[in-house]
Nucleic acid binder design. Sequence first.
RNA 1: GCCCGGAUGGCGGAACUGGUAGACGCAGCGGAUUCAAAAUCCGCCGAGCUGACACUCGUGUGGGUUCGAGUCCCACUCCGGGCACCA
Length: 858
Amino acid sequence: MARYNHREVEPKWRKAWEDGGCFRAQADPARPKCYVLEMFPYPSGRIHMGHVRNYAMGDVVARYKKACGFNVLHPMGWDAFGMPAENAAMERGVHPGKWTYDNIAAMKAQMLPLGLSLDWSREFATCDPEYYAQQQALFLDMLEAGLVYRKSSMVNWDPVDMTVLANEQVENGRGWRSGALVERRELTQWFFRITDFAEELLEGIDRLEKWPEKVRLMQRNWIGRSEGLEFRFETIGAPEGHEELTVYTTRPDTLFGASFCAVAADHPLAKALARENAELAAFAEECRRIGTSEEALEKAEKKGFDTGVRVRHPFDPDWQLPVYVANFILMDYGTGAIFGCPAHDQRDLDFARKYGLPVTPVVCPEGQDPASFVIEDEAYTGPGRIVNSRFLDGMSVDEAKAEVARRIEQAGKGERKVNYRLRDWGISRQRYWGCPIPVLHCPECGVVPEKKENLPVRLPEDVTFDKPGNPLDRHPTWRDAPCPRCGGPAKRETDTMDTFVDSSWYYARFTAPRAKTPTDPEAVDYWMNVDQYIGGVEHAILHLLYSRFFARAMHKTGHLPEKCVEPFEALFTQGMVCHETYRAQDGRWLSPDEVRIVDGRHVEAATGAPVEVGPSIKMSKSKKNVVDPTDIIDQYGADTARWFILSDSPPDRDVEWTAAGAEAAWRFLQRVWRLTEDALPSLPARGAEPPADPCEAAMALRRATHRTIAGVTADIEGFAFNKAIARIYEFVNAISKAPAEGEGMGHARREALSALAQLMAPMAPHIAEEIWSALGETKLVAQTPWPKADPALLVEDTTPIAVQVNGKRRAEIRVPREASREEIEQMALADDNVRRFLDGKTPRKVIVVPGRIVNVVL
RNA sequence: GCCCGGAUGGCGGAACUGGUAGACGCAGCGGAUUCAAAAUCCGCCGAGCUGACACUCGUGUGGGUUCGAGUCCCACUCCGGGCACCA
């Protein structure tokens, strides 16, 4: 008997799918559609197991939905702009475009053998001029609609390389290449008005019922709506034009606990003071060296500088508070200035302790004596009664907030304000490998949008990366172009767009990838929205929020209908792929194929030296704990790789790739094939009449078949692919153990094997086709409707029920399905072991949950 | 630092809405087959105590609610993701 040979079988079926045009999507208004999308990959050059996991999951959904009768759209493309291409250009002198397209070709060649049910005819890369031309058109429409503007904002500046750095290019405050201390620097940059949609984006989350709750929560927190008070302090000793200091607070109730004000280093008041005060200027410089990331700001030691300026308390002109410049105040949030109440905010408390400022509790927890309530080293942020606060004393926190707001508003010193943590989306990048921003700078007309007929504004091919900085800036001729308005000489904008822009609308483009406009109304109307979106949880906030914004902006500019403002109906976030780490004795990381297990010990294959086995962590090149999908596919086949990566962990959690697990998957597929081949001679012809009176074993197998159909269907619907696979293992065990002979066994076995092929098909599509055709079927599984479970075969005559005495399991009884509570109770009390524990006593209470449990309470 | 998750045998995990903890797989152990091995097949497999039945303990830690808690509540520990220029 021949072994199942994936090297022959898998290409054969891929060709059959291709020849049958199985996965080519065509709009058909008469049929229900289903749009399945996995987050498209960045073309790094090699696919990794994370891709295999992501696309295997999407493929399960796509194939399952197709079998359920849906007209499925399942496209693939490339998120192709971005920094790594420029890094490669700098390191190896290869053009970013060539590097990217070579990578795409290599990755596609690796992906095709996976047998994914993708419509490759819709493929595009975001760096294709046809794609970014439409993106530029969208930009121009958004500009016209007032959704785009320019403002000054901060970047990480490397003073040696004279270039802007990404946050990941800043290591310990220094540029990754130059090693120079990085500073914050102001630059005029392009922004999308995402904050105009803050409320809408927040409210929209409520309707995303098929999104993970954790993602919805993260997005809500990210938008960070707060209701507070913006008000003005009168300043003393401030430079001209700074007679008032405007602060924003969500805790106006703590105003009598205030002991200082603090402003950001980039606050206009701080800048004005720094011009006169060298020491303050130096401190502001130091603050700017922290960089631009919120993480770095928050982790930095809290420091302040007393400006000497004072402000008057709004409710007591004789009470003065010092004004500090502090490194933890964000210019982008609120007004860039706060008042600090140390007793009820941890950061303010840390700051006050450091600079010896008073700490006065003004909220006293219920049940605490205000006289003895003191703050030690932990701020109190909970509810309570207001104390030490004159006219607010005795109020609740909420009452006091309202009262302070009322009085401040009445005095004309401020107003209630809803504030959002969300900031406008800065899209300017001072880089080459991105979508050019299609505007010109004209000395006569100012900033002028490029005419649509001139799109795309193409990236020039002849660029060099021998010097740091943006090659577009120093290109000899590219910048020169006529002003679209006056025709005079003008200069092109050299900023390109953030790559998040590219990925914020690709899902819409897939519905009509060759359209001469960004979208095609008919295609969008039929295919949108994405019915199931699948990707890594690391994109839970930024990518998904930007896409939600972009869909709204596209609606506003007429490129998407109203129904598309939430483009992803259902979202699934998958976990990472991990592997053990290996280290040689000299500390070198070793890759899994450099390690062997000899007598149960891990040793280095080349030398036999012992190897230290480290924890299983996300596969990464730096730790060398990567397994190349192509190696696995060569050795075991695509079905094995897909089967294993889906089998071992719940899809939303991390999965650990193990060689033993992959081998087990391979053995299982071999076993299924043997089972089929062994059974073939004993099967009745397809469509033969089943016997009228099958034996009990045949009926048991039939029940197992239909239980499995029902179970696997529910598991796939619920994204529990690991459970679906466990169920299939059980089912195969049941088929193997079923007796060979008996009335109706042949029919039952044929039915079981047919169902097995169909149920395995979404996960392991090649072997499923091989089994299917061995059973004499003429159509492809890929073209066959999903099997239906017969409800009559799902019910059991008796069910087992556990019996507890005082909550501890003491016996198990089998009861008829239709047994009443009383009957179940009688049977439970009659059980030997239960009677032993009753010891002749009468139970106080007997809890009977039919179908589940009996608990006898003494 | 802030926001969001997670933790169950030697390992990955299962346990539907509070109702038999450990399905299924891996590793391990024992057996069959074989000249031998590979492959395959059969059996055992949380810990303790047992000849066996039984019993006791057991879902990161400490408390709580309940007839009953892996599941709900409170407080913690450790691990992971995100923090706006990585994608």
